[in-house]
Design a protein around this nucleic acid. Structure first.
Lengths: 125, 125
DNA sequence: TAGATATATCATCATCTAATGATATAATGA
DNA sequence: TCATTATATCATTAGATGATGATATATCTA
């Protein structure tokens, strides 16, 4: 059996992409693209619940996509690397061309996320 | 409530990234990086089961990441856009620097995939 | 036409995952 | 110190997801 790449490295890479593969985490990353934010600011910007944001930020930090820094009783988060933003940008550009395909893809129900208040359901493409 | 980006476009993007967020799909995409392949060739290269590969290819096609072309009783698949490969490349480079974080991230058990024969479990980073 | 080959589809099931709500921890200020 | 604020942790639960195995659908060839 020929493996084209080490399964271990594929696991790493899939784990990396998994950081981007959830709309809540994406909204957090997009928020941080504008510069460092405290947890509270991310909560405010994204409309997600505090515990949810904290969990996702922990996930993103564990995976190396964001860095955190304690500042008094606040914790400031920021993207760990310019390439995180580059990946998001490249995805935007790719999406612009394959949007129809992604739109029609119904294999995953990513559009039906549960939220605390339902506010984040607003659609404004 | 201020949304930093349309939730609809975030859904699209998360769906796009979801195509990359599974090690089986990544192995398929890596296989196709070398050029077009039939389903059988992908099965051979990745060591995944035929129905599994077919399901994932269908997923990747629905999401616009690959294109398919019937050739007799074979179906040839290829990456839909150079930027798909670019995303993989950029991820490789980012991974090289944040590898420690991703390695230590234990929030997702991506390393414990079930396979038909277990052959794909071989680790060769 | 019949059999073989290549691919797709689909139900099932075990497992994974995100959101919630409650609670814990930590830092600040009165 | 005590109350408040900011963030983290964790168990629970509903729902999503990947692999499998059986089967269906073409397509080719003898």
């Amino acid at each position: 059996m020929l493996m084209i790449a080490g399964t271990r490295s594929l696991d790493f890479k899939s784990k990396l992409f998994r950081g981007f593969s959830d709309s809540s985490r994406l909204s957090i990353l997009e928020a941080l693209r504008g510069g460092p934010c405290t947890v509270g600011e991310v909560v405010e910007t994204t409309g997600l619940s505090q515990s949810n944001v904290s969990n996702h930020l922990g996930c993103l930090r564990d995976c190396g996509l964001v860095l955190s820094e304690q500042q008094g009783r606040y914790v400031s988060y920021r993207l760990s690397d310019d390439r995180v933003g580059e990946l998001l940008q490249l995805a935007d550009e790719l999406l612009a061309d394959v949007a129809r395909g992604v739109y029609e893809c119904t294999r995953y129900n990513v559009g039906v996320q549960r939220t605390a208040t339902g506010e984040a359901q607003r659609d404004e493409v």
